Simulated assay, not measured.
Amino acid sequence: MTTNTNHQETPAPEAVRVAVVTGGSRGIGRAVSEKLAQDGLAVVVNYAHDEASAKETVAAITEAGGRAVAVQADVAEETEIAALFDRAEEEYGGIDVVVNSAGRMTLSPIADLDLTALDAMHRTNIRGTFVVAREAARRLRAGGSFVGFSTSVVGTQFPTYGAYAASKGAVEAMTLILARELRGRDITVNTVAPGPTATDLFLSGKTPEQIDQLAKTPPLERLGTPEDIAAVVAFLGSPAGHWVNGQILRANGGMI
């Protein structure tokens, strides 16, 4: 009796990569969530208040064949962010990409700035970034990536953006520092700084004339789209973008 030794074992399924996207239910965050899901990642869509939009984002991902779950958390609350990361690990087994797209923007001349608005904006944009980045630094698996968000206004320095640009300047300042602190972990840290992008956050409070003027500022003579920014984020979070580390990428169509 002979034994057939030419059989092939079924290969083990490839482990799914997992992303946590804060502010992932609307605007650029939603585009990032959907793009990462299209690229095969399971996505934890974080939201602060708008549960309906988060559910819509998850539905769009799952209807397209992707995997996603919505989880509420305030990025500035460390216990809530720890619970968010716990849920990601419980649901999908680990975390490979963290994108902190949650943000707040208030525009005002510095002389007229409401300090209550300043405190609220800095709580989300500075404290929130540090809370999420700290948890990412503790939990990301080898080969993982953290992507933060700044703004090209840090470079263009338009009037009325002083407080907002200051809050995002803090994000830029910590980017290379965190990348260096994660030496030996095979984890990248980068920040994307969009230019004028057609989102509700950007368009709110602007006249059609202001929007048209801003659209003509880049050499490409248009506003960016959430999908433009999502493609940059997806690259940074992918194996193809893993040699980019500690950088600020100004995704703005050619502005300063």
Rank of each mutant, 00 (worst) to 15 (best):
Leu84Met: 11
Phe85Met: 10
Phe85Thr: 03
Ala88Asp: 13
Glu89Met: 12
Glu89Asp: 12
Glu90Phe: 07
Tyr92Arg: 10
Gly93Leu: 13
Asp96Ile: 04
Asp96Phe: 06
Val97Phe: 14
Val99Tyr: 01
Val99Asn: 05
Ser101Gln: 10
Ala102Thr: 06
Met105Trp: 11
Ala111Thr: 13
Ala111Met: 13
Leu113Asn: 08
Leu113Cys: 12
Leu115Gly: 07
Ala117Lys: 13
Leu118Phe: 15
Arg123Leu: 14
Thr124Trp: 13
Asn125Ile: 06
Asn125Ala: 08
Asn125Lys: 09
Ile126Asp: 09
Gly128Ser: 07
Gly128Met: 03
Thr129Gln: 11
Phe130Trp: 13
Phe130Ala: 10
Phe130Ser: 08
Val132Gly: 06
Val132Arg: 01
Glu135Arg: 01
Glu135Gln: 09
Glu135Ile: 03
Ala137His: 03
Arg138Glu: 15
Arg139Asp: 04
Gly143Asn: 04
Gly143Phe: 02
Phe149Val: 02
Ser150Phe: 08
Ser152Gly: 15
Gly155Asn: 11
Gly155Tyr: 10
Gly155Arg: 08
Gly155His: 12
Phe158Ser: 06
Thr160Ala: 11
Thr160Val: 11
Tyr161Asp: 09
Ala163Lys: 12
Tyr164Trp: 10
Ala165Lys: 06
Ala166Glu: 08
Glu172Asn: 15
Ala173Pro: 10
Met174Asp: 04
Thr175Trp: 14
Ile177Tyr: 15
Leu178Asp: 03
Leu178Gln: 08
Ile187Gly: 05
Thr188Trp: 07
Thr188Val: 07
Val189Asn: 06
Val189Cys: 09
Thr191Gly: 06
Thr197Ala: 05
Asp200Asn: 10
Asp200Gly: 05
Leu201Glu: 02
Phe202Lys: 00
Leu203Cys: 05
Leu203Glu: 04
Lys206Ser: 03
Thr207Pro: 03
Thr207Lys: 02
Glu209Tyr: 04
Gln210Leu: 01
Ile211Thr: 04
Asp212Val: 02
Ala215Ser: 06
Thr217Cys: 00
Leu220Ser: 05
Arg222Lys: 01
Gly224Ser: 02
Thr225Pro: 00
Glu227Trp: 03
Ala230Phe: 01
Ala230Gly: 02
